[in-house]
């Protein structure tokens, strides 16, 4: 472990690993923040990531490039968002149940479709993903330059997106309406804005954002689609939303924290073969738990979350 402090290149590699492990979480958590701020539970982040990953692979496979992959991936994520919106907002189904059902549905349907689209080459193909394109000047910064700006474009897009979601939520009229609709939809309705419209926009946006996490997995990290490749990241993002107190920057930092400890535990396992590996494997989860309980205090979710709006009250 000492080498991280004494050897700058080991530290750079370590931070790069942290960031690569965090990026899908960050996109999904931002989607979660947007959705839950508007008063809709989004348990389907996991499915949205996976749908995004599948769409990215199909898009890149058919169009031959990462841009097509990103577009199809985002559309797939939005499609899942649309189902959640129709069932959870318009038809007033229990949003948590819908979310769980969507996760199961996406897991199976992507596996099934992947076998049709990619066939036997699914695990050996290499799609054209994003090239590593260092940002001039910024990537030369000591230590943090390479992890943040020396990797691929989606990492930079992620940083910009964190700022954009923050700006959207806290500095625009639309954002004010979104936050209001999550707290007191009746007030928003009284003001003449569409509760349903705002929530639809946020759920669709949430699908697009979470899907970008899946796009990152396929287009920047693995270059192929593999079944269940989201592997629970959506649920960690869900915890990050709470840990970050429904704030985009808070959620971003929570994801980085998780990525940091995940990268750390991979190293620690390896350098301490005598310690049972389970101790290290649980480290990121333990830290998340401790942070949730100890540091953040009582989380206060948006007041109207999970309650479909009825004009006549309920």
């Amino acid at each position: 472990m000492i080498d991280l402090l004494t050897n700058p290149s080991a530290l750079v590699e370590f931070l790069s690993t942290c960031l690569r492990l965090s990026v899908p979480l960050v996109f999904a958590a931002l989607g979660g923040v947007l959705c839950e701020r508007s008063g809709v539970f989004n348990i389907a982040l996991e499915g949205m990531i996976l749908a995004g990953a599948f769409g990215a692979a199909v898009g890149a496979f058919l169009s031959g490039g990462p841009a097509g992959g990103l577009a199809v991936g985002i559309l797939c994520g939005m499609a899942i968002g649309a189902v959640l919106a129709v069932l959870g907002i318009s038809l007033r189904a229990n949003q948590i149940v819908v979310g769980i059902a969507l996760n199961l549905f996406v897991l199976s349907i992507t596996a099934y479709l992947a076998r049709i689209v990619f066939g036997g080459q699914a695990n050996t193909m290499r799609l054209n993903g994003f090239e590593h394109t260092p940002v001039p000047l910024l990537s030369d910064l000591p230590i943090i330059g390479k992890p943040l700006f020396g990797q691929d474009p989606l990492v930079v897009v992620m940083l910009v997106t964190v700022g954009a979601v923050w700006f959207l939520l806290f500095r625009t009229r639309f954002g004010l309406a979104v936050r209001a609709v999550g707290e007191a939809p009746g007030a928003v309705d009284t003001a003449g804005l569409s509760v349903t419209g705002l929530r639809y926009a946020c759920v669709l946006g949430s699908g697009a954002l979470a899907a970008m996490g899946g796009c990152y997995l396929v287009l920047s990290q693995i270059y192929l689609f593999s079944e269940d490749m989201s592997a629970g990241k959506g649920f960690i993002a869900l915890a990050a939303v709470i840990l970050g107190r429904w704030h985009p920057v808070g959620a971003f930092l929570a994801c980085l924290l998780f990525g940091l400890f995940d990268a750390l535990q991979l190293r620690l396992q390896f350098t301490n073969p005598d310690v049972p590996h389970e101790f290290f494997t649980m480290l990121p989860y333990l830290v998340t738990l401790v942070a949730l309980v100890g540091l953040v205090g009582r989380p206060t979710p948006p007041r109207a979350i999970g309650r479909p709006y009825r004009r006549e009250g309920d």
Binding site: E13, F14, T17, L21, A231, L266, F270, T271, P273
Partner: peptide, 25 residues
Amino acid sequence: VLTTFTNDWDDVAKAKEAAFSQIDQ
């Protein structure tokens, strides 16, 4: 001979990072 456990048989991204981490060492 060293070992790493990813805790997930299918998590491709984590498996890749685990391997990177080993190679770096």
